[in-house]
């Protein structure tokens, strides 16, 4: 099984250092991505999911951002310590990215075909002509009609959906092993989102890349992902396969998140809510970072931080509830009362 692993992230820590202090945006993240698999990273704004994805290719704005600890291994090679020149051969070639804002992620003054072709010339050593031909082919592959004409156009002449297709074409031009998609459909309308998700699934079947899919939308996760990592306050709090996660969420935060979604197929009077707000990344509490908002919290939760423990063969959770200590503290409390 471990032979299939393409990307492994170990204890990744990305901090932002400023006059306000140290913001621990990513604070010890671990996961593995296997060949052809889609791993979803979900969480609410500020949980560190985007910063995790940017850290993989070392694209965080620096300063003030800095990867302070951890490893990102692509087939065993550590990207965190790699020299820039070597890393550049991986970016856009073996690992590529698509971003949330199709409107601003393409260069406004360069024809889209050229923006795709330049990566092909760079990484595959194609001639100008061959790269252009491949670029047109890619534009056709992502379902844009009359690709020859579109390739010569500049981004402002394309709709939002088409721009995101161009981004996908660009990212997949060099048949990468890993595609990192950071909220790729968040800025799009639902019918366009459906088109884009379909294209991504289709191309994954053809190319076989692993996808890291960053999103805040649990519905999209359910559609797209095999595995899901739920992030809260810079850490992964739960990691399960998708079907299991929605059937049997382990972490109280995941439970709350799923409960707070309005259901499309049933009527509810009131939505379940999570009380309170996310703690500041400058000043995380000592114990469990969710303890303050957690309906199950006991004294141990605010005292010591839980580890991400193996719940069963395929699931991990960061919660005291699933440990022996929990039982101990429960009996202790019973004894004292």
């Amino acid at each position: 099984m471990s032979n299939d692993v393409v990307l492994e992230v170990k204890n990744l820590k990305t901090h932002f250092i400023s006059s306000k202090g140290i913001a621990k945006a990513v604070d010890g993240v671990d996961f593995v991505l296997r060949k052809g698999e889609t791993l979803g990273i979900v969480g609410e704004s500020g949980c560190g999911k985007s910063m995790t994805s940017l850290s993989i290719l070392r694209l965080i704005p620096s300063p003030p951002g800095k990867i302070v600890d951890g490893e990102v291994l692509l087939n065993g090679k550590n990207l965190v310590t790699m020299p820039n020149a070597e890393l550049r051969k991986i970016r856009g070639n073996r690992i590529s990215m698509i971003f949330q804002e199709p409107m601003t992620s393409l260069n406004p003054v360069i024809p889209v075909g050229e923006q795709i072709a330049e990566a092909l010339r760079l990484h595959q050593g194609l001639s100008k002509k061959a790269a252009w031909a491949k670029s047109v082919e890619m534009i056709g592959l992502v379902g844009i009609p009359s690709p020859e004409k579109r390739a010569k156009q500049e981004p402002f002449q394309l709709s939002g959906g088409m721009r995101q297709r161009v981004m996908i074409a660009m990212a997949l031009a060099c048949t990468p092993e890993v595609l990192i998609a950071d909220e790729p459909t968040t800025a799009l309308d639902v019918t366009i989102q459906a088109q884009i998700l379909e294209i991504m699934k289709d191309l994954q079947r053809k190319i076989g890349m692993g996808i890291i899919f960053i999103t805040h939308d649990l519905g999209v996760v359910a559609e797209m992902c095999d595995q899901v990592a739920v992030m809260y306050a810079g850490q992964i709090v739960e990691h399960q396969n998708t079907a299991e996660l929605f059937k049997n969420p382990l972490h109280p935060y995941t439970q709350g998140l799923i409960g707070s979604l309005p259901k499309l197929y049933e009527d509810q009077d009131e939505l379940q809510i999570i009380e309170g707000t996310v703690p500041s990344p400058y000043d995380y509490p000592e114990g469990c970072r969710f303890a303050e908002r957690c309906p199950f919290a006991r004294s141990i939760c605010s005292e010591k931080q839980p580890d991400l423990i193996q719940y069963d063969e395929e699931s991990k959770v960061r919660c005291w509830k699933y440990t022996n200590e929990w039982q101990v503290s429960l009996t202790k409390e019973l004894v004292t009362t």
Binding site: L57, L59, P61, R88, K89, I90, R91, G92, N93, S96, M97, F99, E101, T104, S105, L106, N107, P108, E118, A119, L122, H123, M167, M170
Partner: peptide, 15 residues
């Protein structure tokens, strides 16, 4: 240099 498309260009592996 702070724009999204510059980040895209970096993600592409350009020098």
């Amino acid at each position: 240099v702070g724009q999204d498309y510059i980040r895209t260009a970096r993600a592409k592996g350009l020098k």
